[in-house]
Amino acid sequence: MDLATLGGQFLGTIPLGDIVLYLTTFNLFMFGAALVFTAIIAMSRTESQVEAEFGTLNEREKKVSKDEFKIRRFLSIVCGLATAGAMITGDLFNFTLFVCLIGIVNIGIVAAVKEVDVLDSAFQYGIIAMIATLPLFGGAASILATTGTISLLELVNIPTSAFMLFSSILLFIGVAGESGVAPFFATKAEMFRTAGSPFLVIIHLSSLLVIVRTIEILLIINKPFGV
């Protein structure tokens, strides 16, 4: 399978030594979308939640303090940039590093809240993210061992072996753990139960984009529909 078959027109490469970022229409669109969304988030302010109190007519407003707002905005911007980078990278190990960065920053975005439930689930998510580094980097390493390269531009031309299939399953488990897709969504879903919406949405957006990109990379490596 050709890179152009999956991603539309092949627009060019950005060489950084052995790490060659490449642009196709599909990648470029996702890269742009991530950057635009990051810019919007960097300019926006947080929502505040209003909770009704039980038994009385009072209400309570949950606001994000200034300090918390600043750290969350910073981490959200880093998360958005890492997502954008993961979209156009043409190197498997580089991609796993971007995913790892997204995972760490996601924990950080919710680490500042004061709700105990949210912190608990963020802790569980952190444990998964730690366990997931093993299949994530292990998958990339075993693809390097079995093919001798981790550049996607070269992997396109290498015929699939059984071990490559196994390595990509490992890689997918790693990404699934880091980005918290089903059936591991519960921890991430609980993490959203707090004030400060636009910054929480980038957690969601980054996992969505990373999953789409992972599927593209797995198709590039495994060529399920013939070369």
């Binding site: 998510y125 998964i128 366990i131 001798g148 059984a162 071990f163 196994f166 519960a186």
Partner: peptide, 28 residues
């Protein structure tokens, strides 16, 4: 339940890693 998720994840990972022993290793 968030508390169960790491267990589920590690069980799945463990099964896949065990399955890895029967995959023929090719080394470049």
């Amino acid at each position: 339940t968030p508390k169960n998720i790491p267990k589920v994840f590690s069980i799945i990972l463990g099964l896949v890693l065990l399955a890895g022993f029967i995959v023929p290793l090719t080394y470049n």
